Computed example of a mutant assay.
Amino acid sequence: MMIRAGLVGLGKIARDQHLPAIDKVDGIALVAVASRNAQAEGVQNYPDLGAMLAGEPDLDAVILCQPPQVRYATARQALLAGKHVFLEKPPGATVSEVEALTALARQKNGTLYASWHSRYAAAVAQAKSWIADRKVERIDIQWREDVRHWHPGQPWIWEAGGFGVFDPGINALSILTEIVGEPITLLSAELEVPSNKQAPIGATLGMATASGAAIDTVFDWRQTGPQTWDIAVETDNGSLLLSEGGNTLRLDGEVQMKAPDEEYPAMYRRFVDLVERRAIDVDTAPLRLVADAFLCGRHCPTAAFED
């Protein structure tokens, strides 16, 4: 079976990651793109999803790469049209949206895939296996990057529902909730919100595992120079460090794995498998932690930020 896919939202993440990944993966082919401001070569181009659905009646799946604020309506439209749906992370602006989409996918007997690309980083599976045999005592997360480099000219990330620094930070939470084999609760949060923005540029979270291990987390979008994507885990039998977003693993200070980024091809192989089985893969755990941070976090106004 060859999945005929259409992609909605031809922005930076689609060009940098989705298009090359689709080309690498067997069983799926991009046949159309819907975008207000851009066009892709070698496929049919449409201004929006409605036009794409009308022009491509044989489309099997829709890949959604627009900002999270508008993703729910588009995903619902695609599911109602009988299409399988791939959601870029975060899967929606709210938990309730994602739950509603999951219920609709079940009703339509279609695939809904809430993708968390950082879970497919090379060393995440090995880290999860190593932690499973140990008692976690403490976790420290440092996720610091330069918003000007990764999100140039994208005002939606600073608007309500755009997540701000949680757009990259939720990647760390997606790894955390994957490798720790027990529920995680949010205890406290401080959100640094620039005076001219509606979403945070920095965040400090205090969390804990169900068994009581402390999790200290710092997200910052103002880092220049080398970027930091580290998760350090102390256990009753050694220490673990996931760095480079989960592609490098150190155990007790010694490098065990260092691999290139192949996250998106791995996600598309997963999507092909889900579509073949008409299965659903939607985990809202990372999104719930972000929602909790916005619910109970203390807002700390900070200086205006110009990007």
Rank of each mutant, 00 (worst) to 15 (best):
I3P: 01
I3Q: 08
I3M: 15
A5F: 00
L7E: 05
L10Y: 12
K12F: 11
I13T: 13
D16N: 09
I22K: 08
K24N: 07
D26K: 04
I28A: 02
I28P: 05
A29Y: 00
V31E: 14
V31Y: 11
A32G: 15
V33T: 09
R36N: 03
N37H: 06
A38R: 04
Q39R: 07
Q44F: 08
N45P: 12
N45I: 12
Y46R: 01
Y46I: 00
D48A: 10
L49M: 04
P57T: 11
D58E: 15
L59T: 03
I63Y: 04
I63N: 07
Q66H: 14
Y72G: 00
Q77H: 05
A78C: 06
A78M: 03
A78V: 03
L79G: 06
L80G: 10
K83Q: 05
K83V: 09
H84F: 09
E88S: 05
P90H: 04
P91S: 05
G92P: 11
T94N: 05
V95I: 09
S96K: 07
L101I: 11
L104P: 00
L104Q: 06
A105V: 05
K108Y: 00
W116A: 00
W116H: 13
Y120A: 14
V124S: 03
Q126E: 15
K128Q: 15
R134N: 10
R138F: 11
D140C: 00
W143P: 15
E145M: 13
E145S: 11
E145C: 08
D146A: 11
R148Q: 08
R148V: 01
W150F: 14
H151R: 14
G153V: 02
Q154S: 06
I157W: 11
W158V: 04
E159L: 12
F163K: 07
F163W: 15
D167M: 12
G169C: 07
A172G: 13
E178M: 01
I179Y: 10
V180Y: 06
K197T: 04
I201D: 06
A213Q: 05
D216L: 07
D220N: 14
T228A: 03
D230M: 04
A232R: 08
E234Y: 02
E234S: 13
E234V: 08
D236M: 06
S239Y: 11
L240G: 03
G245M: 04
G246N: 07
G246K: 05
L249Y: 01
L249S: 01
Q256P: 10
A266T: 11
F271L: 14
F271K: 14
V272R: 04
A279S: 12
A279P: 04
I280H: 01
V282N: 02
A285P: 06
D292G: 01
F294M: 09
C296P: 02
R298H: 12
H299I: 15
C300E: 13
C300R: 12
A303W: 01
A304F: 03
F305P: 00
